[in-house]
């Protein structure tokens, strides 16, 4: 079965001022699969992830050239509604960042932002999202408590629920487990495997084992270039490029 492409980058260049952080990235990302970006620090994997939902717009000196399309439409075309784009392409950050409000208000934040005020509807969305993020049972009795009172792993799953609550198509995860303990990490990895059926997941990870465990495709970045991008199994068993091989066998990075 051929993969259905949801995101497609072609000759994408990215600059922080004069410094080029991404060079000629060309890649098609398939829908309803888990794609992992790996590579050493500063290789551009996070930068690429953040170009997908235009989080880099916050940096005044950032500049993008080339094309990046979502369902065939250019993300960087003039007149693109960035808020609508970010609603379709959600993001989970490296460190859990729940807002200093109740668990309920955290998850309801997105729907409220996009105009859902009906109490019953919000209740349903909050419950669905928390269930989808596998945290409902742990927080159902403390929805009104501050999200900051939860453990780090729970906070991160609330953040995932918060991202899911706006019903995105794509979920970007920027090293979403790197600040968590192994048990929480395992929970979130299981969760990712479940979410794959309904969402397209793109994750940046420092942890090669993690990429090997849960991703369908893996992209290896080095110094702003996309060195190799193929099925995860293949990339880890018979890399085509010498540099990929060196990295996955731990010779640098």
């Amino acid at each position: 079965m051929p993969d259905k492409t949801i995101l497609s980058a072609k000759d994408l260049d990215f600059f922080y001022g004069p410094a080029q952080a991404l060079r000629h990235i060309t890649a098609n990302i398939p829908a309803n699969q888990v794609t992992a970006f790996i590579g050493p620090s500063g290789c551009g994997k996070s930068t690429f992830l953040r170009t997908i939902n235009r989080m880099n717009d916050l940096i005044p000196i950032a500049r993008v050239t080339g094309s990046l399309t979502f369902h065939g439409r250019d993300i960087y075309a003039p007149g693109v509604d960035v808020t609508a784009l970010r609603r379709q392409i959600g993001m989970v950050f490296q460190k859990p960042n729940p807002f200093p409000m109740s668990v309920y208000d955290n998850v309801a934040y997105g729907p409220r932002t996009h105009g859902t005020c009906d109490r019953a509807k919000l209740d349903a969305i909050v419950e669905d999202s928390l269930r989808a993020a596998a945290i409902w049972d742990e927080v159902k009795d403390r929805l009104k408590k501050s999200a900051l009172s939860l453990s780090g792993g729970q906070q991160q799953r609330v953040c995932i629920a918060r991202a899911l609550a706006v019903r995105p198509e794509v979920l970007l995860m920027d090293e979403a487990t790197s600040a968590l303990d192994p048990i929480s990490t395992a929970k979130i990895e299981d969760l990712i495997l479940e979410l794959r059926e309904r969402f397209t997941i793109i994750m940046v990870t420092h942890n090669m084992q993690q990429a090997a465990r849960i991703s369908d495709k893996t992209a290896f970045f080095l110094m702003g270039e996309l060195i190799e991008y193929t099925a995860t199994e293949r990339l880890f068993s018979m890399p085509r490029d010498k540099r990929t091989e060196d990295y996955i066998t731990g010779r640098f990075g």
């Binding site: 939902n53 989080m55 916050l58 808020t83 609508a84 784009l85 970010r86 609603r87 959600g90 993001m91 950050f93 460190k95 960042n97 729940p98 807002f99 200093p100 934040y109 997105g110 932002t113 996009h114 953040c159 918060r162 991202a163 706006v166």
Partner: peptide
């Protein structure tokens, strides 16, 4: 992180 969290959810 709070700002990014809000913007990432599509808040203006």
């Amino acid at each position: 992180a709070y700002r990014e969290g809000a913007l990432g959810l599509g808040a203006g």
